[in-house]
Design a protein around this nucleic acid. Sequence first.
DNA 1: GATGAATGAGCGTTCATTCAT
DNA 2: TATGAATGAACGCTCATTCAT
Lengths: 225, 225, 225, 225
Amino acid sequence: MTEKSLEPKPPRRRRKEARPQELLAAALALFVEKGYAATHSDEVARRAGVSKGTLYLYYPSKDELFKAVVRATLSNLIAEAAQLAEQHQGTTAELLLQIGGIWWERIGSRPAAGLHRVLLAELPHFPELQRFYADEVVAPADQLFTRALQRGIDRGEFRPVPLDEACYALIAPLLLRALDNGTLWAPPSTMPPERLLATQIDILLRGIERRDGPAPEQAGRRGAA
Amino acid sequence: MTEKSLEPKPPRRRRKEARPQELLAAALALFVEKGYAATHSDEVARRAGVSKGTLYLYYPSKDELFKAVVRATLSNLIAEAAQLAEQHQGTTAELLLQIGGIWWERIGSRPAAGLHRVLLAELPHFPELQRFYADEVVAPADQLFTRALQRGIDRGEFRPVPLDEACYALIAPLLLRALDNGTLWAPPSTMPPERLLATQIDILLRGIERRDGPAPEQAGRRGAA
Amino acid sequence: MTEKSLEPKPPRRRRKEARPQELLAAALALFVEKGYAATHSDEVARRAGVSKGTLYLYYPSKDELFKAVVRATLSNLIAEAAQLAEQHQGTTAELLLQIGGIWWERIGSRPAAGLHRVLLAELPHFPELQRFYADEVVAPADQLFTRALQRGIDRGEFRPVPLDEACYALIAPLLLRALDNGTLWAPPSTMPPERLLATQIDILLRGIERRDGPAPEQAGRRGAA
Amino acid sequence: MTEKSLEPKPPRRRRKEARPQELLAAALALFVEKGYAATHSDEVARRAGVSKGTLYLYYPSKDELFKAVVRATLSNLIAEAAQLAEQHQGTTAELLLQIGGIWWERIGSRPAAGLHRVLLAELPHFPELQRFYADEVVAPADQLFTRALQRGIDRGEFRPVPLDEACYALIAPLLLRALDNGTLWAPPSTMPPERLLATQIDILLRGIERRDGPAPEQAGRRGAA
DNA sequence: GATGAATGAGCGTTCATTCAT
DNA sequence: TATGAATGAACGCTCATTCAT
């Protein structure tokens, strides 16, 4: 059974530069798969192909490892979307669809999506991370959506809806999909995910877009039902 | 069974029947407050006013205690909403608002809401519970909403939207509020929660309701925008 | 080799009252024998006949266990000597010999003596204990000796020696014996320890006792040879 | 020795000969400062300005490093004092004061003093070192003092005191000062250390020096009060 | 039934030592 | 020779679970 001693023991590899990313990747996968508490430090190390001691050479504690995983996973994501918004020329509805697409590419369709589930459970235990998340993720994202909505209203594309509530209604399905990829609520799966996203945003937009007035080209978007 | 009533001194046996509920209530509160892993068995016992040994007299393990908490908290909630749907007479939009209201009363505004956060993190570790949740909670709720939407479409109240996607868009803000009451995303707080709920459902309904044709009375719902 | 599983496993004994003392005794013995760092918590537990977990039921950390050992070992020792001094009637030289005797009985000839060796090495790492030791052990003991010397001088038994230096010269051989029972310097062993103690105190007393005259020779002391 | 000054590029080999001493100096400082267990190998290396691997190039283990530190620090100290004693001409009391002075210069006022504290705690774990210390430090020093006392007695300078006990009483304050510089017992500080030392030796000498007569009072010594 | 003292497997973390470069 | 990344045995401590009372 214990053929441990028989194996020739893999050689030590020196890769100081690559190690942090390897460890973060292994940790992200395990945190997402098993949650924070059930992820053991030697498991992370083994999955990254190193020993437990090596893990602690790069991250001084499990806490810090988790924080590093979150920061590395979520950093620089919002900035891109914001840039996009600045440069956008077309319809506001199109802008919102584009933002949704970016989100899907960078978060929704990646391990980062699963990280949100862990964050939901663990953020209260990591105040520092809580602040990081609020400042670096929530605030910019909220601003992004709010501004887009305001723009749509200003340009007469949308009815004057309450910004906060409309924003929440837009974000909820996206965020929920990231949080709960089939655990609590199975998302509809009759179409490829990117189409699905578009469909939902579309439904929501219908709820806020201006009707009576001069936005007939929107009706043509999908054939006016 | 025992000749309890004959004995002149029932010194400590009292409340024996209430014990399970008390333990479940204590466990629910702690699981919601601290998560599964961070909830310790002696804390549960202490909060229920008994000793650690007694807890194990009623539930053979922490796992089983958790399962019992989930079952006890979520059982019989769906049935009521289903009943409601059967008897409903008015507009489908009104029906959906009523279902939302019930959900808010029975889940959203109670500890059960917090339980969803824990479930999201722990369900994958409890396959048995996973099945229970899928069968007893998700399936009926999904059916409820789907049927209501179908009814609305059949009666010409709504456009013929894809059922699954519309259903998800309806449920997402409700479920998200239960899961994440301000941890990941702060819900809008400019109005009391029950009004807020109505506003969001309203926005969504706007996205699916039939326009051109004979559903003007819907517009009257809140003043025709 | 591993006949562990064959042994019938000793029964759990419940002795909440006795446990603290048993643990302190085991810990004292091991701390003295191996020092603070080399004493492992499960060793202490095993020597006390309990499991590692039980140790932590009574003392929340190795630090606290050590502090408790020191306090329990040194408390109430000084008070007795002080009482003695108050009531003493005879010669001051006799008083000093008596104090030395008490010290030998309560510290010098017991495990407490070995504890001083550990204290010497560890006190700098335990500031709280450092204060306890300074307040509860050093200060009273110093006062005790200083007052006795002053009394001897006042009563004309001793020459007017510098109090501090004489005090240190008196205490040094006693304390050194406690610290170093043969490790660094083998104490003379040609006579039973209590006699030995008396002999050394006697030598010191000779150095301070008043001689017949008014001690004019103090200046030319060594010209007498 | 090496043609160091001739070479135009001494890229890294320089100081190769000095390495052992630098490592010993760094290790001595840390062992004294923090004790054996709390001194970490990479700290020693860093303080010596080399890497951890280099340390192990010179000393195969922490144990051996410690032994080397002790040997290097204590070697050749006793021999000098012995020489001194051989050549001494004056009073024996003067000789003892001189030995004390040497001790103060070479041990008491240097890092070597602090090493004694560590030795006291660790010698039992290093039997080999124990033997070295007994043979190279204690035995010569004991001989030194014993011979001086015997000489004093032979020459009629001192009363015929028991040699061992007198020797211990002489050494105790010196050794205690080295061991415990204020940790367990604060030495008197009203005068500069070298005067202090003289004062204490003086007090002790008083206890053993021969008085004018044939010391008949020895029997009724304490009746003098 | 009820208690809570006792257990021990298991975790996060450290650090003396090794070895590929 | 010198480096410092890598190792892994070992420690302090936790906590779900057991069981004598």
